[in-house]
Every structure is written in structure tokens, then in C-alpha cells.
Amino acid sequence: MTEQTIPRVAIIGATSAVAHAYCRRLLQSGPVSLVLAGRDRPALERIAADVTARGAVDVQIVAGEIGDPAQVPQLLEQVRGQGPVSLALIAYGVLGDQKAQQSSAQELVRLFNVNLVSAALWAEGFAAGFEQAGSGRLVIMGSVAGDRGRQSNYLYGASKAALERIAQGMSHRFAGNPEISVTLVKPGFIDTPMTDHIEGKGGPMWATPDKIATLADKAATARRNSLYAPFFWRWIMLIVRSLPVPIFHKTKL
């Protein structure tokens, strides 16, 4: 492979466990050039060293408030500055505390800014680039939580649901161009720092970041529009979505 044909991949939220696993997964099938964007520079440097040792070339770090809508345009410039991106992953997200989000305007706005508004800006930025180049793949981390509003996390769920609509609409927008694809990944439980506060985590319902990354990579390569990860969440969410309201409202989910 020559330098020219090495794909340029942008990872937004590169410090996320799933994003890191995704980079490693990509590198198993050959060298890629990586732009790692995130908030925490030392953490990004650690990941840059890891992917470099695994064969990534030309690794670039873009450090900044990736979840702040006001910052996205100039960060996007930096990410795209060194050449066209052919694959982008938008991985960051915040779960937060639903109780706090219900009662604090600041928390609620922050949640939607991070998970939805900034992510939409990144997505539109990459979409525009792909349109210009005539090709590209975008992968966005959604969540099964977007499938039905539940008392414990409907605000987070709403932010992910809206992201799903955006991905869905973009897939429609690019339906005529097989060279451009948008993939929305909907994981269930993943064992990452985001879920460390959950008591008794572990067991068959929990996936490793590598598992989710592998499924995301496969789906993006196959240009799928969306997927549950792992697949069994499709059936679980089918049931959750189809429960009649009177029954659903009796649950504590």
C-alpha cells in the first residue's frame, strides 16, 4: 500500500473506550492515518502512542471542547485541515444523572449540547466533506436508550433518539450515492467508564468495547444504515417498544 491510499480516519471522542477499540480494530486490517479529537490531551497522547505502535501512520491530535457547539466549527477545520477524511466516527457522549437533568436547566442544556447539537454539527461537517469528495463513511454512536422513553433516562434517550433521526435522514439524503454511507450503532450495555457507577455490572447482557467496535466496523464496511449491538438488543427492544402503555407504566425500568 502506498501513502496515498492509506485511508484518513477521524475519531471524535477518541478517548471513549469504544472509540479506542475501534481504532485498534481498524488497524488489524492494515495501516490507517488517524485524527484523534477529544478534550483530554494527555489521554489523547496515550491513545496516539498506542495506535502508532499498532501501525497507524501520521497520527494527529486535535484537543478541544468537542461537545461544545460553539467550538465545533473551528475544531472541524483542524480535523479536516490535513486532508480529506474518508471515515469518521462520532463516539463521545455523556449519560449524566437524569435527576439532575430534570431539575437543572444547565444540566439539561449541556446534555443536549454534548450528545445532540455538537454531534449534529460534526455529522453535518463530515457529510459536507463527503459530498464534496464524492465518498466517505460516517459512523455515529447512538443507544438502545433512544428506542423508548423510560423514567430512568429519557433525557439521554431523547438525545440519542434525535441523533438516530439525523443519521436516518442522512442515509436517505445519500441513498443515491453508494460511495457515501451513514451508520448508526445502537449498543445496549457496554463495560466502559460511562457505566462504572452501575452496581453489579457484568454478565451476558454486557458487551466489551471491542465487541461493539467490531460490530460497528463490520456494519460500516457493509454500509448498513443502523444496527443493534449486539444483535439480541433488537429483540429486547422490540419487546420494550411493543409493551402496551398500561403495562409499561407498571415497570420501574
Binding site: 473506550a17 496515550r46 491513545i47 502512542a49 498506542d50 505502535a53 499498532r54
Partner: peptide, 9 residues
């Protein structure tokens, strides 16, 4: 196990 990065190779 989360300390699982390569530092240099």
C-alpha cells in the same frame, strides 16, 4: 485491565 495501551514498539 484498563491499563492496556502500548507505549512504544
Amino acid at each position: 485491565p484498563r491499563l492496556d495501551a502500548l507505549i512504544h514498539a
